[in-house]
Each structure stands twice: as structure tokens, then as C-alpha cells.
């Protein structure tokens, strides 16, 4: 199981364009990948509705988890997206 905790740097949080890019990237992967806020239940990173409803704001920490072939690379890519400031 690969796991990464990252801070969301985008001004708008994980909404609007960053959320769309994040979910598109997760959806391309053949493995399951989730995200969660501290103490919260994980949701699928491939579901735009679940990601929006999680309501991740600028500066909040999220934990990404994936298992299987290419999990590390996928989490690298997703971490990069959430740590972009725009």
C-alpha cells in the first residue's frame, strides 16, 4: 500500500480546475486510489462528486492511498497536482 500525506496549495482548494485535473489523472490509472482528510473516511479519487463533497480547502492536508502496479508513480503525480499553487 502506497500512502502520501500532502498539503493542498491551490488557492481554490481541491475545487474547480484543480479538482478536475486531479480526478482525470486518477481515472486514467487501472488501480484504485483514495483520498481522505485527517480522521475522515476515504473516498474514491476517481469520483469528482465525492472529491468536491469532501470540500478540501487551501492549506488543508489530505492523505492519498493506492495499491498495486504503478501505485507510487500515481501518487507522485497526484501529489504534484495538489501542490501546484494555481
Amino acid at each position: 500500500m502506497a500512502e502520501r500525506t500532502v498539503r493542498v496549495e491551490s488557492e481554490v482548494g481541491l475545487h474547480a480546475r484543480p479538482a478536475a485535473t486531479f480526478v482525470q489523472t486518477a481515472s486514467k490509472a487501472p488501480i484504485d486510489v483514495t483520498l481522505s482528510k485527517a480522521g475522515g473516511a476515504p473516498v474514491s479519487a476517481k469520483s469528482i462528486l465525492a472529491v468536491l463533497a469532501l470540500d478540501v480547502r487551501h492549506g488543508e492536508q489530505i492523505t492519498l492511498r493506492a495499491e498495486g502496479e504503478g501505485a507510487e508513480e500515481l501518487l507522485d503525480e497526484l501529489s504534484r497536482i495538489v501542490s501546484e499553487t494555481k
Binding site: 474547480a16 480546475r17 478536475a20 480526478v23 482525470q24 481515472s27 473516498v43 474514491s44 476517481k46 469520483s47 469528482i48 462528486l49 465525492a50
Partner: peptide
């Protein structure tokens, strides 16, 4: 284009 592409993603949501 961007607004409607985001709406299209919602229609294709796997959780939904």
C-alpha cells in the same frame, strides 16, 4: 468549455 467539461465529468462519475 471548461465549465461544461466539468459537468460532463459529473455525469460520468463512477460513484454515481
Amino acid at each position: 468549455r471548461e465549465v461544461l467539461a466539468a459537468q460532463a465529468m459529473m455525469a460520468r462519475d463512477p460513484g454515481l
